[in-house]
Design a protein around this nucleic acid. Sequence first.
DNA 1: CCTACCGATCGGTAGG
DNA 2: CCTACCGATCGGTAGG
Lengths: 200, 200
Amino acid sequence: MVEVTRRRAIEDVASELFRAHGYAATSVRDIARALDIQGPSLYAHVTSKEDVLRAIVDRAATRFEQAADAALATARAGHSAALDPAAALAALVRAHVRVITDDVGTAGVFVHEWRALTGERRAGILERRDAYEARFRDLVTDGIATGDFELTDPAVAAKAILGMLNALSTWYSPDGRLPAGRIADHLADLVLRMLQGGSR
Amino acid sequence: MVEVTRRRAIEDVASELFRAHGYAATSVRDIARALDIQGPSLYAHVTSKEDVLRAIVDRAATRFEQAADAALATARAGHSAALDPAAALAALVRAHVRVITDDVGTAGVFVHEWRALTGERRAGILERRDAYEARFRDLVTDGIATGDFELTDPAVAAKAILGMLNALSTWYSPDGRLPAGRIADHLADLVLRMLQGGSR
DNA sequence: CCTACCGATCGGTAGG
DNA sequence: CCTACCGATCGGTAGG
């Protein structure tokens, strides 16, 4: 968390507080206190408390989207013809896990606190969340079509995968037993096995 | 949600509001309004807002624990000797799903809003959550020992399973496409496949 | 970035 | 279960 601007420092501090205590339970003065300034001084840098939340959630959404773009582009690069659904999904899972472990505060806010947004901001982020979930669902559907995956409901599978991955934002700690890379290995493995079913 | 006492009606209304908007974002007057009474009138039935949360979370914890007890007792009943870990875990998953779908408001509060508890109440519920998670983890460990399951980290697997099941409290609706029973079928299937790995 | 301050709302109490 | 009310805190503004 090396901040270049004051605005960014505010968002970093706020994302950690929002993740730990929730948006509604975090006051503007709590954020200010963590930065060693007075509450009203925050308004020299932000227009409202909700705007801070919007900025955090927006940035997190962008990070998830870009990581997914990069992961799928790489997975596709290897294969001139059709995409290997299992390899693509594994890449997508690893990318998602990396976004969370790289900044568990921001990711946790994206996962849990977007509900505190109102009006258009809420609608906009809901749309992006749905589109992101669709990437997982579509890949599962592809894998069923190619015969790589063996299951009947891609929508439930996508909800299950994202639920299991997003829970990471509640239990991951950089100081934990497992390094982020090992966790990504385990989760990608669990997801693939869940979908592939195998000859059993 | 057929309430016998006023106190229970308060908890039912509050659990739905807490689940939908969060504990901190729900005011005592919001709860009262949903019951068509004045805010202060609530205090004839409860001692504090946090006590309402505590009661909801306590009851939810008890429901999860009792459902797990019953599921494991049934799974054990069939086998005079050693327990079949796959069958036991499937029963545990189904029981967990049923508790959520039977009352998604209360379950959602248990899953997400217990953090708003303070002091001893928070510590107490954290202990019960840990013990509950240990049931899943221990069954996974058993299954690895018997050779039924094929994976290396039971702790990560337990977190993954509960994360995927608990996400149900954010997307399940009684009016949804799939009836609760079908969802339980899908999730139990996904969990078992995730653990069994198979000969692939 | 500060002090001084605003109206609104919060959880909760008194007294019926 | 009500009205009247409490001190504390909320997000935010004015004016430097």
